[in-house]
Each structure stands twice: as structure tokens, then as C-alpha cells.
Amino acid sequence: MTKLEAKNLQVSFGNVAVITGLNLSIPEGSITALMGPSGSGKSTLLRVFNRLIELYPEAHVGGYVYLDGQDIFEIDVIELRRRVQMIFQIPNPIPNLSIFENVALGLKLNRLAKNRKELYQRVKTALEKAQLWDEVKDRLNAPAGKLSGGQQQRLCVARSLAFEPEVLLADEPTANLDPENTAKIEALLLDLKKEMTIVLVTHFPQQAARISDYVAFLYKGQIVERGPTKDIFTKPRHELTEKYVTGRLY
């Protein structure tokens, strides 16, 4: 089943066209990896899916994106962001808020917990799922900025999971992490795809090969090739894809 679908999507920043008529469907309950050289529009595409693109006043979006067949530009934006969560390349907890508050914030703002007990429970569950609970349970009130980079990234995952989202967008989530923390995040994503649809932007072909079910290859704002991961890596149909997965195109 298709969870997210982009149709003839176009995005430009000022005069610069970043995405030019892109079509893509993302199957439910899977990990779809978006690959492509720098500047191909991967991060921009993710920011369209949860409409964070609207934080960039110079960005202009045309075309359609459907979530479960519903136009995302007609869904209430806050509702949409609750259902479509995102983690970022540079872990971005809100550094002055505590670990607990970072995870609880969205739940509080959106009145998703009926009382404090439920709030605590949901924060705990999210932190457990993100495999961070054991490390932070004794210092939930410490500022999030004090955590290590790998912990911060898992905190961001927990913050997203607290919403019990339908889609998780991950924008090169391991780009700034060491191998050990990278492995943790990858294991986490594999585990999570049972519950949600994951769109992973990655710069490392090996990472896509390790954990994704599907790969979409972007080049200059368009999908060049899309298919099951295995096919893309073993018998790429397009020359550019082959160059990229074999490391000859950055």
C-alpha cells in the first residue's frame, strides 16, 4: 500500500529550482532510502513531506503530495506534523529544555496526554523505544544540551516516537555519529519499520544497502530510478545510479 505519494512536485528557492517535477510513491511499513548527490533535493523533499519547508520564506512549492490519499496541504499543518515526524542530520534537541521536556513538549502542546501520569508513561515508553531510557532515567531534568551527540540523536528519535507517528522522516540521521552510535540508530530504524513508514535520506550507499527495502535515486530534483534495494545495487538500470552506488559520483 502506498503511504506517501508525490505527484509532479516542484520546489524552488527564489529563482533556483531544487525539485523539478518529481513523482514518487513510498510503500507503507517499509524503509525507503533516498539517495543522490549533494544538492539533488533529498533534504528539501523530506521538508515538503511534513511541510517544514514553510519555515523557509523563500521556498515555493508546487504540485501534490498525498498522505493516505489525502492532500497534505489540506491537512491541518500541526496534525500533519504529528503524523509525519522527522529527525535531522544534526541532532537538534532544544538544548535549554530538559531531557524529559524535550520528549514531553510535543505531547503537552498537542494535549496528547490526559494527565501527568500518562505523560510520564508515554515519555518513558518513547525513551525506551529509542534505547535511551537506561542512560538518562536518573537525570531526566538535566538540560538536553548536556547529552553526547549519539544520545542527542536518540533523544530526537524518542521525541518523534512519543507522537506514535505514521511516518518517520530521517535526514541523514547518522552523518554526524560514530560507528557505534550509527549501528544503534540503524538497528532502531529496522525495529521501527514494523510500526511506521520510514523515509531515510542517506549519503552512504552501504547504509541504504544494509537497512532499506526500497531505494529511490534522486538527481537534480528528479527521481532517476526507484526499486527494491537489492535490484538497485545489483542491477541498476540507469548509468547515474550505477556510478553513485559504486562510489564514482558524489
Binding site: 522527522m86 532544544i94 535549554n96 507522537f163
Partner: peptide, 28 residues
């Protein structure tokens, strides 16, 4: 206020007003 923090704030479904208050708290 870094763009990353702003994205985090809106990413958790804050309204404009809530985002403003959180940002003010950030630059207290």
C-alpha cells in the same frame, strides 16, 4: 535562534505562538 532549533520546535507540532514563546525562552 538556530534554524535547527526552530525546525525542532515546529516539528513537534507547535503553533506560531507556542514557537514564539519557546524561542523567547531559548534566548532568555
Amino acid at each position: 535562534v538556530p534554524k535547527a532549533v526552530e525546525e525542532a520546535i515546529y516539528g513537534v507540532g507547535a503553533t506560531r505562538l507556542e514557537a514564539v514563546l519557546l524561542k523567547l525562552r531559548y534566548v532568555i
